[in-house]
Structure formats: structure tokens, C-alpha cells
């Protein structure tokens, strides 16, 4: 499948470490020191228990497809998906390096990265 052009994220005070790590091809998750759970998207305040004691940890990068679609009206059709990480939360992403017709809900996927227009890297997933 031909690849598309990836727009840039807009890092802010809360998310700068996520995008810095992504440039090193590491997927970070925010964990809560109080309830112990991971959440997504990353916040300074845990959405699960309200604690402000949160910390970055590197994720396994492994998960499975929760749901997916192929947007066919784009100049280069692409796969939009939710991937449930083995750490718990699900994240919106793209699935790349795949044949759309072979994808299935529940399929194991692993993280990979794509360059964005201005030199960030975006975590996406591919079948493993």
C-alpha cells in the first residue's frame, strides 16, 4: 500500500516528552503513581482517578486492533484504527505495511514510526 503524507503534531507543555521520545522511535505512555494504571492520550492529571502524580513509561508497542476502516476518498487511501495496547488503553492510529483486505479485529500489531512533514515521528502500527 502506498503511504500518505503525515501531518505534524503540535507538542505542548504536557506532551513534549511524548513527541521527543517518538523522534527516537519510542512510544511513551502516561502512568498514574496513585492508581497504577496507564491512560491515553497522555495527561498531567490521571483521568482514571484524578491524581496529579503521573509519570512517563515506555510502552511495549504491542497491541491488537479494536476496530479499523479504510478511508477510500483520500488521495492516498489509509487505514484508521483503534489499537488496544497490552498495557490497557486504546489509541487512535494508522495501520501501515498491510493489505487492507487481510486486516481483522483482534489482530496483533506492533508500533512503528512515520516521519511527519516537519520532522516529527508519528507512532503507527503494522501487523506482527
Amino acid at each position: 500500500m502506498q503511504d500518505r503524507t503525515y501531518p505534524d503534531p503540535t507538542p505542548n507543555l504536557e506532551t513534549e516528552p511524548f513527541w521527543a521520545a517518538a523522534k527516537d522511535e519510542k512510544l511513551l505512555l502516561k502512568y498514574c503513581r496513585t492508581c497504577g494504571k496507564a491512560h491515553y492520550y497522555p495527561r498531567a492529571v490521571c483521568p482514571l482517578c484524578g491524581s496529579t502524580e503521573t509519570e512517563w513509561r515506555e510502552a511495549s508497542g504491542r497491541g491488537e486492533i479494536y476496530s479499523f476502516t479504510q478511508f477510500r476518498r483520500a488521495p492516498v487511501p489509509y487505514v484508521l484504527a483503534y489499537v488496544t495496547l497490552i498495557e490497557g488503553p486504546a489509541m487512535l492510529t494508522n495501520v501501515v505495511d498491510c493489505e487492507f483486505d487481510d486486516l481483522k479485529i483482534g489482530q496483533p500489531v506492533g508500533v512503528t514510526f512515520r516521519d511527519t512533514q516537519a520532522g516529527f515521528k508519528l507512532p503507527v502500527f503494522r501487523p506482527v
Partner: peptide, 24 residues
């Protein structure tokens, strides 16, 4: 909005978002 960098770069156009609900 706080979620935007974790959604917009992936191309979450409205029909595709509804498609994922339908697929599931």
C-alpha cells in the same frame, strides 16, 4: 483541544470515525 495531536495526524475524518463504530 488537548487530544488534537493524538487524533488529527491520523486523518480522523468523520465517515471513518463512524465506520469504526459500525465495524465493531
Amino acid at each position: 483541544p488537548p487530544e488534537e495531536s493524538f487524533e488529527r495526524p491520523y486523518g480522523p475524518v468523520i465517515p471513518a470515525l463512524y465506520a469504526m463504530a459500525a465495524k465493531r
